[in-house]
């Protein structure tokens, strides 16, 4: 099996605060991998470090066999794309959906934009009627679909998902999760997904890493987690919390 992303001993420091303290990770091609943790666990920082949005102070990141330096080239962004958490903040307020989707094509000099945009909108279940709308004319779920279409339009092989449904209503969350599963199956994508919700991670991912305070707590398969075969207390706590309130 080929390896898609390897992260080794990754450290990220913001103004003396160590957000990531030497985290390692191996992602196989075509797999869906989850990062679980509470706020401050460094799970989002890990995604951002891979994309280059957060500066890695030490450690190495290898994507599809290529070890990354400080900067990322255009070819990297055609391999790796990201969907952000907040659908209200990740779409430019003054651009139509059409313009948003055109931008990556223009940057990479891809022709036949018309066709690709229509196909991308179809793929995320929005259709032509949404093409010329502004972000404020869309609901949260629709915005997140546009964000997914934007990430897919460059046909990447790896998709990084930063809590893609935590800002959405439960029913909309189900639709977006289904959409993500569908595009993954169709395009044979590799997912690296961050969430604070164990139920979502076990639903979406085959393997996962539990994180706390910038460190890995343990690495599990989804079935180990479902069967409560965990070795760390912290993971057990998370599991208990995810089952809802129990009166003592």
């Amino acid at each position: 099996m080929t390896v898609s992303i390897t992260v080794e001993g990754l450290e990220v420091v913001f103004d003396r605060f160590r957000a990531l303290k030497g985290v390692s990770l191996e992602l196989r091609e075509g797999e869906s991998y989850g990062l679980v943790g509470e706020s401050g666990s460094g799970k989002s920082t890990l995604l951002r470090a891979i994309t280059g949005l957060a500066p890695a102070s030490s450690g190495t990141i290898t994507v599809n066999g290529k070890t990354l330096g400080k900067t990322r080239d255009k070819a990297f962004y055609r391999e790796v794309q990201m969907v952000f958490q907040d659908p209200y903040g990740s779409l430019h307020p003054r651009q139509t959906v059409d313009r948003l989707l055109q931008e990556p094509l223009a940057i990479h000099g891809i022709a036949e934009g018309e066709k690709r945009i229509e196909r991308a909108l179809d793929e995320v279940g929005l259709g032509k009627g949404f093409r010329f709308r502004y972000a404020h004319q869309l609901s949260g779920g629709q915005r997140q679909r546009v964000a997914i279409a934007r990430a897919l339009i460059l046909e990447p092989s790896i998709l990084l998902l930063d809590e893609p449904t935590s800002a959405l209503d439960a029913s909309v969350q189900a639709e977006v999760l289904n959409l993500l599963e569908e595009v993954r199956r169709r395009r044979k994508l590799t997912f690296l997904m961050v969430s604070h919700d164990l139920a979502i991670i076990t639903h979406m991912c085959e393997r996962l890493m539990v994180m706390q305070n910038g460190e890995a707590v343990e690495t599990l398969t989804a079935s180990q987690l479902i069967g409560h075969r965990v070795s760390e207390d912290y993971t057990r706590n998370l599991l208990r919390a995810s089952e809802g309130f129990v009166r003592v």
Binding site: A170, S171, Q173, A174, L177, E181, T202, H203, M204, I226
Partner: peptide, 22 residues
């Protein structure tokens, strides 16, 4: 019922998740 159903739950494999038909 739809609201109860559409959330992923640990230990219950449902692919795809049932969605709400408003």
């Amino acid at each position: 019922r739809g609201l109860l159903n559409c959330m992923p739950k640990i230990g219950f494999e449902r692919h795809p998740l049932p969605v709400l038909d408003r």
